[in-house]
């Protein structure tokens, strides 16, 4: 597993988030369990961006919400700046939440339409009792708006007066209001028009440099993730299948699922596309209600072996520092 490295902001160990499926109207009984996140471990170092990628239902958003403790953790450990927060209740989470903030996907649904921009951005300051000095409070809100590229006179307007890209800026201003250490960004640009995405991606990178922020960047767009991340974790059906630095992952993906994902992404150049071999994997992600036995990817894996059908491959650290959960890699004892 991931050995502890110097100064991790976040260390997640064997995190599990299971949702019970119940049936019946009066006497509700549990008929199954969705293992949305099923044994995930990773660390995030100070000042870095960890990309979390995977297709819908892989558990990437659930992982983000569980780290923030907005969802109950079934088991496992979440350590934030060395403090084990997995058992914390709401009250004990409050000071932690000031340092861990979330940026949401939908810039339309995540801002209260009845609040002025100034109140949306300033609310975290009020909640955490940092708004007693009115002048300081107003100056802080103005500074935050400026930091995300909005004009101070926009403070008195309502969200509906803004475009999607501007709304996402408002959401970011709110998220950084309390000077957090860690920002968890859940598909923060996927709802935006392509010409606007670059504006917001650049803003994230600028703010990181200026404020020393640490990001978990959750997205399904592998090109955007590649641009912004230092390291990337690839998820499939509730598990991390590969975690590596950007160059390792994109130049030489080891896990067959990572390889399939990258092959599926078209490159915006017809000449390159004409030369690329298109190995498209078959099938779709199986239900998280009944994940396949053994390696969860074996039903779609072009390289599946006999062992993959029955033995769940553990995460193994490779000599170059990355980790992969695949029987093809790093297990001479099990291979053959």
């Amino acid at each position: 597993m991931n050995a502890s490295r110097p100064d991790p902001v976040l260390a997640v160990q064997d995190l599990k988030v299971h949702f019970p499926i119940t049936s019946g109207i009066i006497a509700r009984r549990q008929v199954g369990t969705v293992k949305a996140v099923d044994g995930v471990s990773f660390t995030v170092r100070r000042g870095e961006t960890l990309g979390l990628v995977g297709e819908s239902g892989c558990g990437k958003s659930t992982t983000g919400l569980a780290v923030l403790r907005m969802l109950d953790i079934t088991s496992g450990k979440v350590e934030f700046e060395g403090e084990d927060i997995s058992g914390y209740d709401r009250a004990r989470m409050r000071p932690i939440r000031a340092k861990m903030q979330m940026v949401y996907q939908d810039p339309y649904g995540s801002l209260n339409p009845r609040m002025k921009v100034a109140d949306i951005v300033g609310e975290p300051l009020v909640v955490h009792g940092l708004a007693s000095d009115k002048d300081k409070y107003r100056a802080r809100v103005a500074a935050l708006l400026k930091m995300v590229g909005l004009l101070p006179d926009m403070a008195e307007r309502y969200p509906h007066e803004f475009s999607g890209g501007q709304r996402q800026r408002i959401g970011i201003a709110r998220a950084i209001a309390l000077e957090p250490t860690l920002l968890i960004c859940d598909e923060p640009v996927s709802a935006l028009d392509v010409s606007i995405q670059a504006q917001v991606v650049n803003l994230f990178m600028e703010l990181q440099e200026r404020l020393g922020l640490t990001y978990i960047f959750i997205a399904h767009d592998l090109s955007v993730v590649r641009h912004i991340s230092d390291r990337i974790a690839v998820m499939y059906l509730g598990r991390i299948v590969e975690i590596a630095t950007r160059d390792q992952l994109y130049k030489d993906p080891l896990h067959p699922y990572t390889q399939a994902l990258l092959a599926a992404v078209p490159i915006a150049d017809p000449e390159i596309e004409a030369q690329r071999g298109q190995q498209i994997i078959v099938g779709e992600i199986p239900s998280a209600l009944r994940p396949p036995p053994g390696c969860r990817f074996h039903t779609r894996c072009p390289k599946a072996m006999e062992i993959c059908k029955s033995v769940d491959p553990p995460m193994k650290e490779m000599p170059d520092g990355r980790a992969v959960a695949c029987h093809l890699h790093g297990s001479p004892a099990l291979g053959g």
Binding site: V194, S195, I196, Q197, A198, Q199, V201, N202, M205, L222, S223, V224, R226, H227, R246, Y250, L262, V265, I267, A268, D269, I272
Partner: peptide
């Protein structure tokens, strides 16, 4: 638009 084979050192030009 970032590309899978793009130069990651070069900032995107929005």
């Amino acid at each position: 638009v970032p590309r899978l084979d793009g130069d990651t050192e070069r900032p995107l030009v929005p």
